[in-house]
Simulated scan of single mutants.
Amino acid sequence: MNADRETNHDMTNGDIASMLAGATDEVEIGIAPYEAVIRGGRRRKARRWAVAAATALVLAGSSATLAVAGLPGGGGTVVPAATGSATPAPDLFTPARTTLATGTENGKEWWVAIDVWAAPRTEAQAAGQLEAMGEYGDAPAGGGTKASDLIGKSSYVVYFSDGDKRRKTFEDVFTKDDTMSGTDLQTASIPFAVDPDGPQRLVIGQVSKEAQQVTCTWKDGTTTKADRAPANTEIATDQPTIRPAEGSQVDWFVCLAPKGTEYKSVEVSAVR
Rank of each mutant, 00 (worst) to 15 (best):
R44H: 13
T99A: 14
K108M: 05
A101G: 04
A67W: 14
T98P: 13
A69C: 02
W110A: 07
L71P: 03
A56E: 12
G107V: 00
T122F: 08
A82H: 14
P95E: 04
A127F: 08
A54S: 11
A119S: 10
L71I: 09
G84C: 12
A101T: 00
A46G: 07
R47L: 05
G76L: 05
A56F: 02
W110P: 03
A124M: 12
P80N: 12
V51M: 10
L71Y: 09
G128D: 15
A113V: 15
A64F: 12
A127L: 14
V116N: 02
V79F: 08
R97F: 05
P72R: 10
T102N: 11
G103S: 11
R47H: 00
D91E: 15
V112M: 00
V116A: 00
P80W: 08
A101Q: 10
G107D: 09
L71H: 07
G76D: 12
R121F: 00
K45S: 05
G128S: 15
V116H: 01
W117A: 02
W49I: 05
G128W: 14
A89K: 12
G103W: 04
G128C: 15
R97M: 05
Q125W: 07
T98M: 11
T99P: 04
P95I: 05
K45C: 00
V58G: 02
P80R: 08
W110H: 08
T65P: 03
A54Y: 00
T94Q: 07
W110K: 05
V68I: 11
A82E: 15
I114A: 09
T77R: 06
G76W: 02
A124F: 06
G41H: 11
V78A: 07
A113W: 06
A96F: 10
V51Y: 05
K45V: 01
R43Y: 04
V68Q: 07
K45E: 09
E105V: 09
G41W: 11
T77L: 11
G103P: 05
R44Y: 14
K45H: 04
T99S: 10
F93D: 00
K108N: 10
L71T: 03
T122G: 04
T83K: 12
N106R: 14
A82Y: 13
Q125V: 10
L71D: 06
G84D: 15
V78H: 08
W110F: 13
A86S: 04
A127T: 15
L66Q: 09
T122L: 02
T77D: 15
A67Q: 15
A96V: 10
G73V: 00
A89P: 03
A127H: 09
F93W: 01
A52R: 06
G73H: 09
L59Y: 02
T122D: 02
V68C: 11
T122N: 05
A60I: 02
R43F: 00
V116Y: 01
L57C: 02
T94Y: 04
T65E: 07
G75R: 03
V112P: 01
G76P: 08
A86P: 00
W110V: 09
P90R: 12
E105D: 13
T122C: 01
G107L: 07
